[in-house]
């Protein structure tokens, strides 16, 4: 079925202007996502997101997408290669399961930002709330503000950088992700400990801060990681769970 909105998008594409603009005031969500998913590149501007869910998901090519405003759940989910920039705030599950590319949010992010991400860079310029980077599997996340409780729960790989403070139970049941926090950590989760900041960590951190546009000195951060006591069940550690 070709909707009026879809026809309008096609007409806009035919003009060949860059960036191309899609106005969500009259575009169906599926038309937006199927149009973007069909592209191999180009600059795109999405106007009037009005908190809509699942905007710009499943992109698989190096598009440059700017969403002008605030979004709802699952913005830029399953991203591969694309660079998505949100000028407002995002709801729960931004950049969930990202493979590569980048997602940048100028405002705040709600729960489980960057959950299960395998790669790419997620930058939150405001605060991220609870469960940021839960089960991260290789993604890099840089939060300019604070993060909420249970962040990096069961994180397996990748880097979580926080310029502000972290909430309760940071890195609970952590595997091999690296957590860098400049501010206060309210409490560490089970099996998460502070670790020595070695030169290679300062190097990783400096690179991430630079790529995330964060003006911060790597030496001001502390590193947290797994004590590796909970990888396999051992009766002596039963009390740590």
């Amino acid at each position: 079925m070709t909707t009026m909105a879809n026809t309008q998008i096609r007409e806009d594409l035919d003009i060949g202007l860059q960036p191309r603009t899609i106005d969500m005031a009259w575009t169906e969500l599926r038309d937006l996502n199927s149009t973007l998913q069909a592209q191999t590149g180009g600059e795109w501007v999405i106007e009037n997101p009005r908190g809509a869910h699942a905007l710009a998901v499943g992109l698989q090519a190096p598009l440059e997408v700017t969403i002008k405003g605030s979004t709802g759940y699952y913005c830029a989910g399953m991203n591969k290669e694309a660079h998505v920039h949100v000028t407002g705030s995002v709801g729960p599950g931004v950049a969930e399961n990202m493979i590569s590319g980048s997602v940048t949010v100028e405002g705040d992010a709600s729960q489980y930002a960057g959950a299960t991400g395998h790669g790419g860079l997620l930058v939150i310029k405001g605060n991220a709330s609870s469960r940021c980077g839960i089960s991260m599997k290789g993604i890099d996340i840089v939060v300019h503000g604070n993060i909420g409780h249970m962040s990096a729960f069961m994180a397996q790989s990748g880097n979580l950088v926080v310029l502000g403070d972290a909430g309760d139970a940071l890195g609970d049941s952590l595997y091999e992700a690296r957590l860098f926090v400049r501010g206060k950590v309210k409490s560490l989760g089970a099996d998460c400990i502070e670790k020595e900041m070695r030169p290679e960590h300062l190097e990783i951190l400096a690179d991430l801060l630079k790529r995330a546009g964060a003006d911060a000195d790597p030496s001001e951060f502390r590193r947290y990681g797994s004590a590796r006591k909970l990888y396999n069940f051992h009766v002596d550690h039963a009390g740590d769970y």
Binding site: G51, G72, D108, S129
Partner: peptide, 22 residues
Amino acid sequence: SEYRAFANLPGIENARIWEPEP
């Protein structure tokens, strides 16, 4: 419950938006 609820409020583009802490 979601940001969508604010879309028609006057001046929302310049409002302070935040998630209430637990």
